[in-house]
Design a protein around this nucleic acid. Sequence first.
DNA 1: CCGATATTTAACTAAATGGTTAATTAACCA
DNA 2: TGGTTAATTAACCATTTAGTTAAATATCGG
Lengths: 129, 129
Amino acid sequence: MHDQLSQTFQALADPTRRAMLAKLSLGEANVSDLAKPFLKEMSLPAITKHLKVLENAGLVTKSRDAQYRPCKLNGAPLKDATDWMEHYRIFWEASLDRLGEYLKTVTAKEKETTKKKKTAKGKNHGRKK
Amino acid sequence: MHDQLSQTFQALADPTRRAMLAKLSLGEANVSDLAKPFLKEMSLPAITKHLKVLENAGLVTKSRDAQYRPCKLNGAPLKDATDWMEHYRIFWEASLDRLGEYLKTVTAKEKETTKKKKTAKGKNHGRKK
DNA sequence: CCGATATTTAACTAAATGGTTAATTAACCA
DNA sequence: TGGTTAATTAACCATTTAGTTAAATATCGG
């Protein structure tokens, strides 16, 4: 998985890393700032590694300030990610529409109760249709 | 990594799986349809596994039609993913805006040449330097 | 220079990922 | 019924991931 987009999605596929990005969205923070909320759950080197994943994905840049490493969020790779997802927007808006449609239907037809009920509903493992 | 959002991003973090979604965005397709473009690079069971990842992430649903398994794209999980990313939009538009700003500036102020140039520009977070 | 603080590196481990080949299941069709 | 097609499952393997502890590096501050 070497392409940029995969790396971006991969980096986002972890709640710790997303939380770190959320923190960085509030402003620069050094490593121990970023680590603080997680030090009960994991060690500092674990944080360093997560940060490295974010850096490799280009989502975070690190600079130097004495012994500190102030980190900065770089949103650029997220643009390509949203651009990719944008192509699929219709596929969730469509289903929401259908949900709305469905809700209208059920509320409207509340009188027309229990018509057909025992048509093979479950797995119907044996055959098709 | 058990949360839905992580699973969604994880599923998207692979070009084969994204290509399968792209194909499904054109309409239903059964497993061998989906596999066809990749059978030179990988085996059918590999495709089955990728498909399973997409199913587990809720991005694809599979039904039965005789020996075929028609697959359908379900965009719903992508909504949460884009919603998440939406919070960061400013972080890529910011840089693009600054680019636009910059472009306006240079073209507009082409007469007013080189005014102030060396005012501390960076973050200068801690202190040093 | 010394000790403390901030962070990384090394070495290791367990589990997940992405792939393989071979075998199995299921349904069609002639 | 038997052969063919569609797809999954099993068993296995290599690599990556996510974590650990312990040691190393670098910089500040007195």
